[in-house]
Nucleic acid binder design. Structure first.
Lengths: 155, 155
DNA sequence: TATTGTTATACTCTATAACTATA
DNA sequence: TATAGTTATAGAGTATAACAATA
């Protein structure tokens, strides 16, 4: 019955653990747990998860960002961003211009309506965050952030 | 200059920390770090991230799974799965049947070619996993899994 | 020539509703 | 009537290549 060196079969313990102990899956499960609470809030306000990442990046940035900066921070590709920025601009959630010193480089900032949206959604999402923070405890949450950062740094 | 109770402005420390300390973003960054190494391997073998999740779930399961089971385990919606399973079946990577006791319920298992694919990709991905495990250390990795599981459990 | 961003194109996944067939 | 799965449809994101404008 499935010797240790057999090719992994359906009931093989290693195979079972492999899926359960897959780092991408563990990260996905945790993220889904968080996002399942958060997505309905975003949907109510007519923004997708990816659009929200853009708005959050812009609202947190001290200075306007280029498309390249945004791409790096939000993990969205250029073509996706191009279309998305056009749509967000049409909705007056962001503003676009060109860099003074380099006409190729775009200069993107959050617009007042975008900041309002972030300010509206923020408090609503806080309850979700508090629920998770309370469930884990502050020390565990700190550890989690630390470990996630270290994992990200391995890229 | 931005009193503590001011609405978050571009240079506001809380806003900065908010994006940096966003749990969804931290989870995404970590996951992207892992997947950026793994995705090329999957692409070389002609499977998407989501298809890989299905194949892994099936290869790890002791018994055949229903579409509903798969949906739960892979975080894919029914319609996505329906199309994907048709495509995987056409490629002989999975096999489908009906449950003996309930003709509505599908019975899906991995096919030999699918198991071969998992067996081929597995070792290739092991190098990626070892790199991360070495960078973090075994204790940290254990902690990470534990914290991710606890986070997932809050859903 | 290299870089920044956009446009083009094809494919995949998301999301909701309507539908089929069982139970 | 309720459940399991599929089909229909619309929209959004992924990915690569080709392109325009600028450096």
């Amino acid at each position: 019955m499935n010797p240790p060196d057999a090719r992994a079969g359906p009931a093989d313990d290693r195979a079972l653990r492999a899926f359960d102990r897959s780092l991408p899956m563990a990260l996905l499960r945790a993220r889904e747990a968080v996002m399942s609470r958060f997505r309905p809030i975003l949907a109510e306000h007519g923004v997708t998860e990816q659009q929200w990442r853009v708005l959050r990046a812009l609202s947190s940035a001290a200075d306007p960002l280029s498309v390249g900066d945004l791409s790096e921070q939000t993990f969205l590709l250029g073509p996706s961003l191009s279309r998305m920025l056009a749509s967000l601009e049409e909705r007056s959630l962001i503003e676009r211009g060109s860099a003074a010193d380099d006409a190729r480089r775009a200069v993107i900032r959050i617009a007042p309506a975008g900041r309002d949206l972030v300010a509206t959604i923020g408090p609503e999402s806080e309850a979700t965050y508090r629920h998770i923070a309370d469930a884990l405890g502050d020390d565990a949450l700190d550890s989690l952030y630390d470990l996630l950062e270290r994992t990200a740094a391995t890229a």
